[in-house]
Amino acid sequence: METSLIQISNLTKHFQMGGTTVRALDGVDLDIPQQSFTVVMGPSGSGKSTLLYLIGGLDRPTGGQISVNGERLDGMDENKLALFRRHAVGFIFQSFNLIQSMNAEENVGFPMQFSGIPPKERKRRSKELLEQVGLADRGRHKPGELSGGQQQRVAAARALVNNPGLILADEPTGNLDSASGVGIMQLLSDLHHSGRAVLVVTHDARMVRFATHKVFLLDGKIVSEDQYHRASLE
């Protein structure tokens, strides 16, 4: 029997927009097993990014429960959430979020500063990870000197730096050309095969072929694949 990595029950997230309440997530129940490759699909505004941020501890739910690795995130104080983000998860964003003034190596090593890892060890590990994502010769390049695909690889290396068990990727191919997008998908798949759980939020249908688990979201609710496709055709 597969053990659960992420357990979500009756999760809600509401936003106030002007005078109205937007239900970004509306009673989501989800169970994601260890070492799975989960693809969360849904149209814009379906609440898929909100779900990813809540799982990553970057935002707080309005109601319901989330546990990651047995740790309850709802109700955790800010400091504990920061430590959770530092050790348990690695993020990959659509817009890469690299620091423009730092070179690739420094960007990869950036999160390790907060863990108090000495500079020599940071440098060694950054080089190793850049090599792993196929950018061994680009360590000294700044983000502006790299292609979109290369920047996303640097971001992926950064996500791995604290050796987390869960990689959360928010539209990782959204800002990339087709070929680069495939490359990133392959990289995420490799990470999955190396023993990590990967959760990707995307509306790039090509990602589905790497998935071990699929989640479909419509208007803040989980729906079946059939319902999702029917809704897409309407």
Partner: peptide, 14 residues
């Protein structure tokens, strides 16, 4: 950048 710092594990104190 502050958002990123927090995402990669910086505490409010950091």
């Amino acid at each position: 950048e502050i958002g990123l710092m927090k995402a990669v594990g910086a505490t409010n104190r950091d």
